[in-house]
């Protein structure tokens, strides 16, 4: 059964993020979306990677896995494969998604399992004191020194095959909550890249984020089912970040279904196993 208030989804563990961290907004929006969607904590699993943002699983009263850096997606898909009736949400940072876990990201996206993925993208590795991540906008400058240019998360996800791709902002909890709800309701691999601030270590990017005038995607005019148009929008260079739903498409989800746990009745299996052994008779 779902819980009535978003605060009921919170554990009483002390939140260890820095004051002003964008992750607070994500935690609030997530719990709000949970209560409005009516998610039963016992039927919900929040799987994270490792890093500041991945601590979010400790603060939410659902089942959770605090995974390995970069491996949250395959662990989460494993949970879903074992028990497809569970609601499985993945959350983690931009390092998890686009650096150490980039290989998993593109392949999980093309396979399109029924997972909701929240990327808390603050352009840096906060837990190790602020090294630039693959999405650090300050790399636009550094790129001239051969460091490389930042990843475009939305464009990457659209081309990789994700079937719901949105971008939100941690300091706009209402629209973020709506995006998370949409993602939770999407059947398939749904990703919300959440632009998030790190006031402690990423002051350069912080400056660009703190401008209030975000560009919101016009839901009436943007052809959200058109992959090329979505990509065009994602690739368009603008002076302000764009938030909203870039792309949405229905596509089949993998239906590999292992038999759930606790299935004590081995009789059917014994029959089939007997037949398999007959095939191994010389």
């Amino acid at each position: 059964m779902g819980l009535k208030y978003r605060t009921e989804y919170r554990t009483d563990r002390k939140v260890t993020w820095c004051p002003g961290c964008g992750d607070f907004g994500v935690l609030d929006a997530l719990c709000d979306a949970f209560s409005r969607t009516g998610l039963d904590p016992a039927q919900t699993v929040l799987v994270t990677g490792n890093g500041c943002s991945s601590m979010i699983g400790f603060f939410v009263k659902t089942y959770a896995m605090h995974g390995l850096h970069g491996r949250a997606l395959p662990m989460a898909w494993g949970v879903k494969l074992a028990n497809p009736s569970l609601k499985v949400i993945v959350a983690g940072g931009d390092g998890d998604a686009f650096a150490v876990g980039a290989g998993h990201l593109v392949h999980i996206a093309r396979r399109n399992p029924d997972l909701t993925y929240l990327i808390m993208d603050n352009g840096c590795y906060g837990l190790t004191r602020g090294q630039p991540s693959p999405t650090a906008r300050r790399q636009i400058m550094a790129g001239e020194n051969g460091v490389g240019q930042p990843i475009n998360p939305v464009a990457l996800l659209i081309t990789a095959g994700a079937t719901f791709v949105a971008q939100g902002y941690s300091e706009d909890p209402k629209s973020l909550r709506l995006l998370i709800q949409e993602a939770l309701n999407h059947r398939g691999f749904a990703v919300v890249n959440i632009l998030s601030s790190c006031p402690t270590f990423n002051r350069q990017d912080e400056a660009s984020l703190n401008r209030p005038e975000f560009l919101y995607i016009e839901t009436t005019s943007h052809p959200v089912h058109d992959r090329l148009e979505a990509l065009r929008l994602a690739m368009t260079e603008e002076d302000r970040p764009r938030v909203g739903v870039f792309y949405r498409k229905k596509r089949g989800v993998p239906d590999e279904r292992p038999k759930g746990a606790g299935s004590e009745d081995r009789r059917d299996d014994l029959t089939r196993l007997g037949e398999m052994m007959d095939e191994l008779r010389p």
Binding site: V45, V47, M65, G67, L68, R71, L73, P74, M75, A76, W77, G78, V79, K80, L81, A82, N83, L86, H104, P258, G260, A261, G262
Partner: peptide, 10 residues
Amino acid sequence: SLAIGVSYAG
């Protein structure tokens, strides 16, 4: 990683 998730779920 997949196997760990599968086993966590039973």
